[in-house]
Amino acid sequence: MKLFLLSCALVAVAVADNIRVEYRLVDYSNPGSVLADGKTKCERSGPCDPKLTGEVDVTSSALNAWPDDKKVAKWVTIFQKKSTDKDRVGKIVSRDICDGNFRKSNLRVQAMDVNTFSSNKEIQQFECLISGGQRDVASSEQRAQWSEPKRCDQKYTKPGNAQLTYQWRVYSIPSRECGRQL
């Protein structure tokens, strides 16, 4: 019996070494159609053309200042749409931690107003922080529950600035699946 319990414990430790952190981006809104300064409109008339790009940081630098060590220009496009100031994003962004422990994670998102004939303008910088530990790691994807919706922190906090909501979950994955990025 002791040998069986020891084997189970070793399997649990091995499984917990490979972890997937997932963010489900729920809603994006920019009710005032404004840029980062909170005053200037994206367009003269009508809504913005938002493009959200992002990067999940699951290392000890998850709390570092924006944008951390990756260049924003190399971030992956998460969402892009023409003429919208409120939309359901419905996109899952993930990052694997291979042979490591889960402590915290930060999904950094850059929101830009993308225009064909003029320069792109910044709408918002978001940080979607998860702070937890091994207790938050579910044993499998099937057992992992999504958190309650939460708002990402905003760099620009003037009234009317854009907002982004997300949910998160963290779970163990087999070694053969580890390594999938954003």
Rank of each mutant, 00 (worst) to 15 (best):
M1Y: 11
K2T: 09
A12G: 08
R20E: 05
R24C: 03
L25F: 04
N30A: 05
P31K: 04
P31V: 06
S33D: 14
L35H: 12
D37G: 12
D37L: 12
K39L: 08
K39W: 07
R44Q: 10
S45T: 09
P47S: 14
L52H: 01
E55Y: 11
E55D: 13
V56G: 00
D57W: 08
D57C: 05
S60R: 13
S61W: 14
L63P: 00
L63H: 14
L63T: 14
A65S: 14
P67T: 04
D68T: 11
D69L: 11
K71V: 02
V76H: 12
K82S: 11
K82G: 10
S83V: 10
S83G: 07
D85Q: 08
K86F: 07
V89G: 03
V93D: 02
V93K: 04
S94W: 06
R95M: 09
R95Q: 13
D96V: 01
C98N: 10
G100M: 08
G100Q: 05
S105N: 04
N106T: 10
R108Y: 00
V109S: 00
M112S: 11
M112P: 00
V114Q: 09
K121H: 13
I123S: 05
Q124F: 09
Q124I: 06
E127D: 14
E127N: 14
C128N: 08
L129A: 06
I130V: 15
G132M: 07
G133R: 08
Q134G: 10
R135Q: 14
R135N: 15
R135Y: 10
D136K: 15
S139F: 15
E141G: 13
E141M: 08
Q142Y: 07
W146Y: 07
W146A: 03
W146M: 01
S147Q: 03
P149R: 00
K150E: 10
K150N: 02
Y156D: 07
T157F: 07
T157M: 09
A162F: 01
T165A: 06
V170A: 01
S175D: 05
G179C: 09
R180F: 11
